[in-house]
Design a protein around this nucleic acid. Structure first.
Lengths: 198, 198
DNA sequence: AGATGCAGTTAACAAAAGATAATTTCGCAG
DNA sequence: CTGCGAAATTATCTTTTGTTAACTGCATCT
């Protein structure tokens, strides 16, 4: 039994009072996926509607800009959901690429299959609701940080709230998530150090 | 019968094949709210879990920054949903303020009441799913624009996609949504004009 | 060990944004 | 129509970011 299944069973119990023994119809449709460091999980143009729970590792979602550069939309790590949002929300080929930054273990399900399961087992519906709310919450937080904070403040925030993450991930991806260039992030770090010393 | 009810009945039919005649248990719990221009719908600190569909008008969601300035998170208008997301997602008092920019008509429901209705009428569940996905989609779009586009490009985007909106709303709110100051937006507009002429 | 390659820093300059204040424009109430 | 107040523009100056390129450090591969 994978650790993520236990976690999700606990979640289902908390959300809907469903006992682990009664979750078989759902977890029968999930499978474990293992990704090597730097391995791509979803490619640009892929149409699979993948939904996954991260058991171990870090995933990065990014897009290729019109000028060819990459822009990192977000990072997700242990106990978080990651979903091919273009395919799930809009049923269109993914413009985004999802890639593991570390050796990563996922518990995945095809969203179409999940919908089938939900038709016969509506009692699992709170779980879908939960992950949609979680993703919405995270997106709104990020939006909020863009309209209320300067790049430096956003970086300080990230350090304060996700110090572990910043240390596990190359700065260039952090910079991109913050909406700035790696050069600019480097200068922010320097300014922060200088202030700290002075 | 309000126009929004008809719209939402159509939506429920498209999503779940539910006939308008069978939507009474849901719409019995909704009510129309009318707001004057500049009237506040949800205050900072409010705990009501309000979910509304905008029949007519424009709503602005904003937050008071630590320095006292306002930051506009988003605008919503006809046929869109607006929800007190702090209270609904986190069950905490709203840090955001929701205010009408024009005389506005909403069809509203209390989220707790909606959840009660959904317990006895799970057939409406696709509607909740729909609005969560819609909001998630919009948030992700905005996030994407922050990491892939410059302020000027974000403004051009907004003009291209929501020209009508830009003309209905004071520039200062547009600027704030774009993550810049009104002064800076004014300069962007000037640069765009100059380029167009030159 | 040496070569290769990439992430991160630094430098130099151009472009853009922030802050503040003055000025103009615009909408609207009287 | 007039006058008031808010919104938008403009100006000036400072700070920050973008861009490009050089350089530094570090890990990896042979």
């Amino acid at each position: 039994m994978s650790a993520s299944i236990t976690t999700l069973q606990q979640l289902l119990f908390d959300l809907a009072g469903i006992l682990p023994a009664d979750t078989a119809p759902l977890f029968a449709m999930t499978r474990q996926a293992k990704l090597a460091a730097n391995e791509t999980y979803i490619r640009e143009g892929d149409t699979e509607r993948r939904l996954a729970f991260i058991e171990q590792g870090i995933m990065r979602a990014y897009i290729i800009k019109s000028n060819g550069d990459e822009a990192t939309l977000f990072l997700r790590w242990e106990k978080q959901f990651i979903a091919s949002h273009d395919t799930i929300i809009h049923r269109r080929p993914s413009r985004f690429i999802y890639r593991a930054l570390e050796p990563t273990t996922l518990l995945e399900i095809d969203y179409d299959v999940l919908e089938e399961v939900l038709k016969t087992h509506p009692e699992y519906e709170p779980l879908r609701n939960f992950f949609l709310m979680r993703m919405l919450s995270e997106s709104l937080n990020i939006m909020e940080s863009f309209v209320t904070l300067s790049p430096e403040e956003r970086y300080r925030n990230l350090l304060a709230e996700r110090f572990d993450l910043v240390n596990r991930v190359p700065d260039k991806y952090i910079a991109s998530m913050l909406g700035i260039t790696p050069v600019s992030l480097s200068r922010i770090r320097k300014r922060m150090l200088d202030k700290g010393k002075g």
